[in-house]
Simulated assay, not measured.
Amino acid sequence: MAVIPQSIIQQAIGWRREFHAHPEIGLQEYQTASKIRELLLSFGLEVHSGIAGTGIVATLRNGDGPAIGLRADMDALPIAEANQFDYRSVNPGTMHACGHDGHTAILLGAAHYLSLTRRFHGTVHFIFQPAEENAGGGRLMVQDGLFSRFQMQEVYALHNWPGLPLGEVVVSSGAMMASQDNFAITLTGKGCHAAMPEKGADPLVAGAQLIMALQTLVSRRLSPLEQVAISLTQIHAGEAINVIPDTLQLSGTLRCLSNETRKTCWRLLEEYVASVPVAYGVSGAVRWEYGYPVTRNHAAQAERLRDAAEHTAGISRVDGTHPPSMAAEDFAYLLEACPGAYCWLGADGATPSASLHNACYDFNDDLIAPGIGIWASLVERSLK
């Protein structure tokens, strides 16, 4: 079992708080990337910058053997921070509300520890990824040659998880996180005076029927065993109270835990949009913004990550059967390109953590030591 020196843990906490105070939005992580590069070079690693813009890959080699990748996301969110502690964000309207500051510090701590101890045979690639939040930095890194330029047999990531107790790790085989797609529906009718509805074709009535019909897509067109969420979240129509408008705009999101179900939902939603409004003399069209695929762990790598967590100081429970989340994660792109696994690290201490993407959220620094320990254990046990 790896014993992480207190000096490295305290350094990592300091780095984490520095990153928290200076958050940067996806693909703009210039200051963050510069600090990461500076630290990695000081550890004696081989450092490659500018991957997918601001991404970094650092390589540590120690003899012959396989190669694995460890990934941390490093971008922040466009949220005005409500916290008042000393290291709160100095960048207005931007904060680390998802813990990427902590994930980055954990990976830096692991790189420092492994560069000193080198109790493994093979190669470790430390992947610092930009733009996990919405911009798909994982996809951009894959497209920019992450796996062709840096040969690795497996890739891993972790995420802090409010709602789980400190010391608990969740890593399941199969789906961990849902796919995520956004859609925008336009219903086109014929505007008219609100007192003479027979002279027009009302897109609002058609829209109301479509909203309700889409709820039956999940309950009647898919198996009850499928896990799908279709949420209509925006509706815009009209300018005057006495006018039936020409058009109505609906927007929403689709989440699935199977990529095959995801494709079925694309088809069915388009069928509903095309057919339901017809009875009201209205036409419908849908525009998709295809997002992240399902984050699906590979079985062998999930078992390897569970084993590493079970042999990490500070980890009291490893759960391999926890239900997946309907939230999305762009590590999915890396798992589509390379075998690997992703885990959640419980974040709730004596006081429960604020939720992710909340203006009062702060990463729990008590996760730093077990987080570094998981990566050290994984490397030392996988690359014996």
Score class of each variant (00 low, 15 high):
Ala2Ile: 09
Gln6Gly: 06
Gln11Met: 03
His22Gln: 07
Glu24Phe: 07
Glu24Tyr: 05
Leu27Ala: 10
Ile36Val: 14
Glu38Phe: 07
Leu40Glu: 02
Gly44Val: 12
Glu46His: 08
Ser49Ala: 12
Ala58Leu: 06
Asn62Leu: 07
Ala80Lys: 12
Asn91Asp: 08
Pro92Lys: 07
Thr104Leu: 00
Ser115Val: 01
Leu116Gly: 09
Thr117Glu: 11
Arg119Ile: 10
His121Met: 14
Gly122Arg: 08
Thr123Asp: 05
Thr123Gln: 02
His125Lys: 09
Phe126Ile: 11
Pro130Thr: 10
Gly136Ile: 02
Met141Phe: 01
Gln153Ser: 15
Tyr156Gln: 02
Asn160Cys: 08
Leu164Thr: 02
Met177Gly: 01
Ala184Glu: 13
Ala194Asn: 10
Met196Val: 11
Glu198His: 14
Leu204Pro: 00
Ala206Asn: 06
Ala213Phe: 14
Arg220Tyr: 13
Pro224His: 15
Glu226Lys: 14
Ser231Arg: 14
Ile244Gly: 05
Leu248Arg: 09
Leu250Asn: 11
Ala279Thr: 13
Ser283Gln: 07
Tyr290Thr: 03
Gly291Trp: 04
Val294Met: 03
Asn297Thr: 00
Ala300Leu: 12
Ala302Tyr: 08
Ala309Cys: 10
His311Lys: 04
Thr321Phe: 10
Ser325Met: 10
Ala332Pro: 02
Tyr333Cys: 04
Pro339Ser: 10
Gly340Lys: 01
Gly340Asn: 00
Ala341Cys: 10
Tyr342Met: 03
Pro352Trp: 09
Asn358Leu: 04
Leu367Thr: 11
Pro370Cys: 07
Gly373Arg: 04
Gly373Leu: 10
